[in-house]
Design a protein around this nucleic acid. Sequence first.
DNA 1: CTGAAAGCGCTTACAG
DNA 2: CTGAAAGCGCTTACAG
Lengths: 347, 347
Amino acid sequence: MPGDRVAVSGVDAWRPADGRATIVDVAAAAGVSRQTVTRAMNDMPGISPRTKARVLAAAQELQYRPSRFGRGLVKPSQRTLGLLVTDLTNPYYPELASAVIGAAAERGWSVVLAEEKHATDHRRQVRELAGQVDALVGYVGAEHPGRGEDTDERLGVPLVQVDVEPHQTDHGGVVFSPRLGVEQAIEHLAGFGVRRPVMIDSAGPDLPSRRGRLFVDGWAARGVDALWIPAGDATVTTGVSGLERALGERPDLDAVLAFNDVMALGVLSALRGHGIGVPDQVRVIGVDGLSLGELANPRLTTIAIDLAVVARLAVELAVGMDGGTVPRSGPGARRSVSYQLHVRESA
Amino acid sequence: MPGDRVAVSGVDAWRPADGRATIVDVAAAAGVSRQTVTRAMNDMPGISPRTKARVLAAAQELQYRPSRFGRGLVKPSQRTLGLLVTDLTNPYYPELASAVIGAAAERGWSVVLAEEKHATDHRRQVRELAGQVDALVGYVGAEHPGRGEDTDERLGVPLVQVDVEPHQTDHGGVVFSPRLGVEQAIEHLAGFGVRRPVMIDSAGPDLPSRRGRLFVDGWAARGVDALWIPAGDATVTTGVSGLERALGERPDLDAVLAFNDVMALGVLSALRGHGIGVPDQVRVIGVDGLSLGELANPRLTTIAIDLAVVARLAVELAVGMDGGTVPRSGPGARRSVSYQLHVRESA
DNA sequence: CTGAAAGCGCTTACAG
DNA sequence: CTGAAAGCGCTTACAG
């Protein structure tokens, strides 16, 4: 009986020298046809227990694993989303990733996560990822001058950019709208009588961020001159150095808006180093609404964006584009989410 | 000319009513054979510019995307790793995930990331993930009594458990060895004259963790009675409540080992609330070595495990099992990594 | 430069 | 209960 031959002659006689065992190898080893192997492997009816056991034994002996490509070709396949983030070490991205994975799971999609920092060639990374998934979501080309070059059409899959520039309509995206949140923050600070506010921005010397410009302009509209400090990339370290510079230029500052929560943590730490009380002497606000801010002392007040909403919209767009119910570019391919002030302790 | 027909009659005439356009649809639309479409899509030589342009136009018109299954069946395919984590909101997991994604990228593997918290049925989630990838790494069944039920054989793909119990040899895994690190921590604390140490453990009332037992036993060997507090799941909140309980039972405590860094942050915060100085009055140590601890004030001393090493070993095992060069169970399928004390400021 | 043929590994009807 | 046939969407030789 063929089943016995397997046990006696062992694995190597059956496994092809190169590559894995296929359904045909298992069928041969068990002395049955291919579809009998399918029945055994997939717990389908119409197979005798004896045969099933024999097939399963042969499969195990050969370390047989059905090819997901062969199967995918013929069965309605699991869809998968590619999520591209810059750096999981920045706490913003895990929160986004968790939200996206959750939103995708709700629709039965799984998520391939790629980190830009691990790629030597970002553009190639994006193309490779695109080849493995049904739609792409995240920060695609975010750090690059050519952002926008990787269009949907070039990639071959729908592309949903997170935090996309409002004017970019050549692919899908979720637009982040800071206007409301920044206005709320100014209002909040003004209510405390703040007159010497500072923006510690993540930017080069001549390029304020959108939120930075809104903050400065908002104060100007109230007749208050806000100091704008470009501090470089948004890390705890630049938060510290930014605050030092701010203190140098405006020793009597009474409020700080940091570009994001991570930078705000640096600001908090630097203020503590100077023995300056928060929020009594200086009020500090971050941006993003990360759960990290809850751990700070004092707990960080922040202009928050709801990443669960962002994720839901992004996944919804991607799934819709994949299904053809959402256009893959133009205004119809965009959604907008507003920031909102979350008052905690630091302001 | 067929190319014109596409432009004139538009998309819908060509796209099959159900499902996406295939290579055959594009070939028909462009009036060429299938392999000419392949040549155009993949930038292969042996095609005239005119033809290529015509094919590309048709492909775009039909929103044609090559099926990754069809392609995967016939080309040496991109391998992918499934990484299963419990909850990305716990900062331990993003650090692990980032390391695993990096290690996988070095070998040309991509990573599907699944979060256990999003699954209604964990076992099913694991099976589905297994069907999409070439190997599985991470916390598989970690939170479940039946941990170990999901074997390599049942799943059909190699399984590498991270932080596997040392006695589990029925599948691959990376073993975490706390002995050295805990011993170093005790030595370090003893050097400061600590005599009233406390372990705030993540555990039920009768089940100390391995590190918890090592800590208590290590002190006992020095004739010092360490207080053991079971505080429940390891969060900032339980860190706080655990410290409160410890203070109740031993008001003069002079050192705390928390189950992990996240809990230690809670301990730090609670001590600050009581106006107790760290490290002057009480020395605090966490476990894991997360970068988060650098942000704490004072910076957190911690018994660290090198997640880059863990990730490299886990991926190495998974890749080796996939390639057949590493056994899929038994002692040969395991690697061990030791914790080591990282002295920062809190102790 | 272009196309007819074969085959990748699997599953789904359809016969027996 | 079991197997012979057809086909999923693609690419790789091989002819012309």
